[in-house]
Design a protein around this nucleic acid. Structure first.
Lengths: 250, 250
DNA sequence: TCAAAAATCAATCAAAATCATTCATTTACA
DNA sequence: TGTAAATGAATGATTTTGATTGATTTTTGA
């Protein structure tokens, strides 16, 4: 395998996983440990990654986020799994909408479909999308400082000009009676419209959002397929009566 | 196999695979190693590919990125002066449009007016604007990877919903006969519409842009006030016959 | 808490792969 | 047929690679 090729593969794996073990890279590239070490040294010198004991990490990945504790409190691992599953639903040639939010952001490095077009209201998504050379359209509108999401009349107006093969929406609550909810009504309107404009709609939510409800309603359960990471059989049956639901196992 | 045919085949394989091993090319073309080496040398000289140890790789457009970086640091002091002058034109309560570009970006930290609202198509401007707690609206549209500007139909559509007290536009050429110009027609349309929607319009350009013209016309000179850093009296008189012009002294 | 054990690391070196160069030989074409 | 360009084989130089060494860091377990 060519050096160039190896370096690309290393950076791609890193983008997907945030942290990679040296041994994983040895396996993935079928090269020796020495070679991978040399690669990592070089890529670090080029400021493409940061070496850590046992492997490598993304540059802007904070040290604390590597700790198991932080990961478990924020359900990072679960979100990654959900995002990975969602990403492989994207097919060659799809036009998709990706909602702002941390879970949907995780999708981007896992998307491998070719010739796709992405529309998003998440400014934080741009870097990853452009990095992968995916043609990207942004909604207009007011920028919500805290989340860097585009909302308001302008966002709705922009959305109206599109329609999607698939959309991927993050929510804060999924509830049997109240449907999909999120705290900000402005955001809810954007999410709601995106759902309507999409042939297939997916809602991404880790288990901490199940059976919860917050202020603003986005849509009824029927409006989308749920992708989550964990759900006991009783609840599963309850939700399955209303809509399709995918439970991603570890 | 003819040289030309080989070259075509090499580039084709390369386009498909991003990187090719020399040995693969030897097999694919049924030529000797020496011949392929010669081909690769030649194609590299023609800037069709990049040789790497063991084969060849596509050349990525890092050249452009460098040129952008170069451009952004060129005449920086002049640009900063122009931007500072423009920034103090912003009054309390104004609604303004700030165009994408390095000169206009420099405006943001110098704006001291209160209760203003900013609309922009420059994604790079966001950080500075939000840092100053300025309510900011972004246009929608396609993201131009090179400049991180929003362009296209979506951007024009978004713009139509606004009107401004003042707008600040960057241009690549100011010419007595050809007016204001910029290389990208898509961007020109956005700039042009912003000018029309504004009660007062300002064009920011350092002296290197004066008496120059590029591909796509934005508007006639009359459509805006010019802010620049240096201009001999003869030219000044020429331009003043057509429009207002502010020359910012050191 | 501490020391032993395990894992990971940087440095070195020889083998393997790749490279540029040279020089006959073949091919293309007038 | 003669000439110039293109080819392929051979040479030694250069680069990359993988194994090995002992040093360093992390983990384990008492």
């Amino acid at each position: 395998m060519l050096t160039e090729e190896r370096h690309r593969l290393i950076l791609e794996l890193l983008a997907e996983k945030k942290v990679v073990k040296l041994q994983e890279l040895v396996e993935a590239t079928a090269s020796s440990e020495s070679t991978i070490r040399r690669d990592l040294s070089q890529l670090e010198k080029e400021k493409k990654l940061r070496r850590v004991h046992g492997g490598a990490a993304l540059l802007h990945q904070k040290r604390e986020e590597l700790s198991v504790l932080e990961k478990s409190t924020k359900n990072m691992e679960e979100k990654r799994m959900i995002a990975q599953y969602a990403a492989q639903l994207v097919q060659d040639g799809d036009c998709i909408y990706i909602d702002a939010g941390t879970t949907t952001l995780e999708m981007v490095p896992h998307i491998h479909a070719k010739d796709i077009v992405v529309v998003t209201n998440g400014i934080t998504h741009l870097e990853a999308l452009l990095e992968k050379d995916i043609p990207t359209y942004l909604l207009g509108g007011l920028i919500k400082k805290k989340t860097k999401a585009l909302i308001g009349r302008g966002a709705l107006h922009s959305l109206e000009h599109y329609s999607f093969d698939k959309c991927f929406i993050g929510v804060n609550g999924i509830h049997h009676d109240f449907g999909y909810t999120t705290p900000d009504p402005e955001e809810a309107m954007v999410k709601s419209l995106a759902l309507k404009l999409s042939r297939q709609a997916y809602v991404l939510a880790d288990h901490s959002k199940m059976n919860e409800s917050t202020f603003a309603k986005i849509a009824d359960l029927e409006a989308a397929t749920i992708i989550t990471d964990e759900l006991d059989d009783e609840l599963l049956a309850l939700y399955e009566a209303k809509t399709a639901i995918e439970v991603v196992k570890k």
